[in-house]
Design a protein around this nucleic acid. Sequence first.
DNA 1: GCACCTCGAGTTCC
DNA 2: CTCGAGGTGC
Length: 811
Amino acid sequence: MADGFNPLERARWLRAEIERHNRAYYELDSPLISDAEYDALFRELLAIEDADPALRTPDSPTQRVGGAPLPEFSPVRHAQPMLSIRTETDFGEGGALAFDARVRRELKLADDAPPVEYCAELKFDGLAMNLRYEHGVLVLAATRGDGETGEDVTQNVRTIRELPLRLKGEAPAVLEVRGEVYMRHDDFARYNAAATERGEKTLVNPRNGAAGSIRQLDPRIAASRPLSFFAYGLGETQGWTLPATHAGILDALADFGIPVCGERVITAGADGLVAFHRHVGEARATLPFAIDGVVYKLNSLALQEQLGFITREPRWAVAHKFPAEEATTTVLAIEVQVGRTGAITPVARLAPVFVGGVTVTNATLHNEDEVWRKDVRVGDTVIVRRAGDVIPEVVGVVVERRPPGAEAFRMKDTCPVCGAHTVREPGEAVTRCSGGFSCRAQRIQAILHFAGRRMMDIEGLGERYVERLVEFDYVHGVADLYRLTLGDLLEMKQRADERDGTVPETVKAGQTPTRWAENLLAGIAASRRPTLARLLFALGIRHVGESTAKTLADWLGSIERVRRAPAPLLAVLPDIGATVAAAIADFFAEERNVRAVDELLCPEIGVAPADEHAPRPGLGERLGWAELYAVLGVPRLTPLRAKQLAAVVDGATLAREGVNEPLLSDAGLPADVLAALADWLQGRGHRGLLAAVAARRDELLAALPPASALLPAAAPLDGKTFVLTGTLPTLTRDEAKALIEAAGGRVSASVSKKSDYVVAGAEAGSKLERARELGVAVIDEAALRDLLARQQSPQLPGETVEQAAERAEHS
DNA sequence: GCACCTCGAGTTCC
DNA sequence: CTCGAGGTGC
């Protein structure tokens, strides 16, 4: 080039310059150049990159304003799950004191040990985000989602100007930054003023503004919204030596150019936490952004590791919120709603009131006792807040302002929808409609539940359509959904429009709108292959939610086995006790339910779980002495007592020795139970016990088709010793242990030469190092699952050994 | 037998 | 998010 102009060099210089000005603008709050000059630099860079797209880099500031709108966000699995944080329930000083006390107890500190060091920060009210930098370049931004899987919103997050697209300084190979996207009060006000001027919709509050902007499919809209970001932690890192403390991490992030809130302290003991909470509470109104509390974290990472996690919440951190904003309004009416289980819930209709950032018009009153406790009456002036800043809640009544003659609420003794009488079981808080499936409200709710996102996930089937389908009798049970035709839907729509007296625009124009109906039919058709767990959850069996449905699917593997399993066998599964087991067995004993399930599964309708498999090995073994004792039918021998009995004596010994005091004294069983047991044994002869147990066991197992599939093909991990360390992505330590043991393996606490595998998860510590020293194989959760899955391939009914092996390959 | 934790169910608003 | 209820460990 004759004039020595090198576009590559120039582009590089422009990028650095633009980022420098960005930082000056946001971090130092002191722009070095005018907006016009900034724009000129920006446009020059755009021009160079447009002329030669090869010069465009992912970290270029021009990439902040992304290209075309996305059709939808793609799911992203987090390298490390995004955990939630426990919230202290006491809004006052007690919250800080309780946390400190818990930490000291867990760390086993003596009362006179020095105070523990904490890092205390603000809890920003925004949208949690995971930013992934690889070799210093922002490559992925994902929402939290369910903690395991979020959505890829990189395009929108790139538009946040104060976020570096490239890190300053020496960046590690991988650095995931956890933080909050939020909107400042002044930016929010300025944006709304401008939006009003343009005649556009305004944002309701900064929080929804931030969340809504990030969820825009068109990144140009997100770019127009003034968003900010604060980091508060880490996700996965590679090639980086972690600082020793949480405060150190925040400092390091700030050095990389990531925005970190300066309002944070390192402090010692409960006193420091209380002081910070009070200080921030006083300063809250003057902060330029919204917070809903403060967060305390144990500062030392080593101590954090020592405390670990309870399920998905760290034991070493806690959120301490401020009391929610309250407002007063009046109760216009108290109405009742009927849920899918028939539960009748009173709801207060309120005069609209703006509280906690939104206008509230309804608030649940939960149940009869709750209304009675708070003594809420129609016409009352009540204090309302958004519990946890989300769900509206009636805090209390201003009794002085009660209008004369206001009457106390009384639950009606008939269902408001179907007129059936209502019942309240003794000891239960809820009142239920006894109408069951003949109550329209319950049918509608049951179908809505079936279609829900975590169940069959039928797109396009919302409350409106379900109500109409049921009302006009096109759908009676869930199976009818799959029989709907285009004609049915159009006819229904026409009848609904006629009744409501509405005439859609398209009909006026002489057209027949079919698009929505086609979409709905496509949604229904697409739901025919749910996972077994989703199908079980969708059926709406009492006490069977998402988690229990997963347990059933996991252990029994097929809908046939679930529906044929006797209650005592179900009760053997983890977290399923007598009540839940009975609810499941009762459901499948009910004629109507049997028919409904048969219908769904029949070839004509063709719903079929996509992931049926053999039962988990170890199911038979779970039927131990405790379970078998419990189902013998000995009077007064409850499951709990059966367990106590099993702890001191197995069936063979009991049959041989009979009920003798020295043998059973350790069980701690009441005399009447022992007497009943002795009586029972008397009746059958002691030998009868073994026979009865064996028969019962066979009977339970034989109920499941086919019996052979229940027995593990081989214990795949027989004799292998495992050590668990760190937090696994999906399994808790106990689950991993159970899986390994069910497959014949052993789990030990420390690594030695005899260990076969160390299963390492996130934040693995010294055990991992020791494994490396000793040359013990280190595997992750996925590899563990492979080990468990690969070698076990029991056959499904009608399947050859080869087919089973092939299936195992694919799963 | 009690304390603790988890799960299920119902609900709000955008 | 809250409440109640079921399950389990101490």
